[in-house]
Design a protein around this nucleic acid. Structure first.
Lengths: 193, 193
DNA sequence: GTTAGCATGTAAGGAGTTACATGATTTT
DNA sequence: AAAATCATGTAACTCCTTACATGCTAAC
């Protein structure tokens, strides 16, 4: 249970850990990070915020995010200490959900707040998840012989290609981590050409 | 409304247009084509089949798909004439839903049953959808300057790269279509290197 | 003979979208 | 002053997953 909701909550907590924000703004920031994949409707966002407040993870700052825009009926949300602790624990105990397409991106965008061990755990888990998919698809392609038409073949080829590419990318990220993390080494070596 | 359901129904009808099958088998075939992206649970599949039967698009062949496995309580589904017509019309009048990630793959896997005009329409629609996303992301990246950490940047770069790659792929597919379709020309020119 | 895989189905519940409802503020 | 955009929220509805319930057949 709680599959996507975990990803949503995680990204809300993650963004708020960087700076407080109100719902409308939150959504835009979410799109810019996770937006490669999905957008979230207010019908999902506001109830989530409400629930996080009820559980003590967020507090409603009645106004002023320290900058522009005088006053309005905006509600600025801030992480509570409990919320920070919750975020840390979510980030640390990553179950197999963390290898999912949607969740992985959110988690990686929060890597800066995690330990090397956690990062490696997630990257390797993701890689092995993709390798399993890859193996299944290849077995299928080889065995199948289901006289597929040119279009379906092209589609499969493209999908396979994208998967292989992501695995290579993960391999590079893992090497970098093992050599001290992305922060330390030059990032330009990845995806250089 | 009916967003995913359309994709589900489309892929059921599409697969059955190639040959009759029962639910269990159908699901496996679905995974092999669309499986790059998602799998479907029986809790979704069987009710869908039921509904398609009720609407007259499918008929239940009580037994025997002409081959092995003597008899069992398997239900083999066949497209009715109405179902064929429905499939054709779904394939032809493709609204903006057809550019969605999930739906696009299903539709492309059925390209062999469509006209050149339909194929071009979908490929171009998909491309312009991706180009819009791309433009938004780039604008965001350029303007933002939200001092993102190395991990988030790497993630964005990878996402951008994948998007650009898909656009190039679509461009090649479109050229090939304009030159007579994938069937006619050598497919090896695409994704050769 | 018992485990593993084939095969179908339903009920409860989760998670999110769409559509609606409302109002302030900024831009034209 | 109208239009666009910012901003929050709720209720109904849709679609799907999970968990359960059932039974056959093949393999070990």
């Amino acid at each position: 249970m709680a599959k996507r909701s975990e990803a949503l909550e995680l990204s809300v907590l993650g963004i708020l850990s960087q700076s407080p924000a109100h719902g409308y703004e939150l959504r835009k920031r979410m799109i810019s990070v996770t937006g490669l994949f999905k957008t979230i409707s207010y019908g999902a966002l506001y109830p989530t915020l409400k629930s996080l407040v009820e559980r003590g993870f967020l507090a409603e700052q009645d106004n002023n995010p320290t900058n522009k825009y005088p006053k309005r009926n905006r509600i600025v949300y801030v992480l509570t200490d409990q919320g920070k602790a919750h975020l840390t624990s979510l980030l640390t105990d990553s179950g197999p959900d963390a290898w999912d397409d949607e969740t992985f991106a959110v988690r990686m965008s929060l890597f800066a707040q995690t330990s090397l061990a956690t990062r490696l755990h997630i990257l390797q888990g993701r890689r092995s998840r993709l390798e399993t998919r890859l193996a299944e698809l290849r077995a299928n392609t080889a065995k199948g012989r289901e006289r597929l038409d040119a279009y379906t073949l092209e589609l499969q080829k493209h999908g396979l290609d994208a998967l292989e590419r992501e695995v290579r990318w993960l391999n590079e990220l893992i090497s970098h981590e093992e050599a001290g993390g992305l922060n330390r080494s030059s990032t330009s070596k990845i995806n250089k050409k």
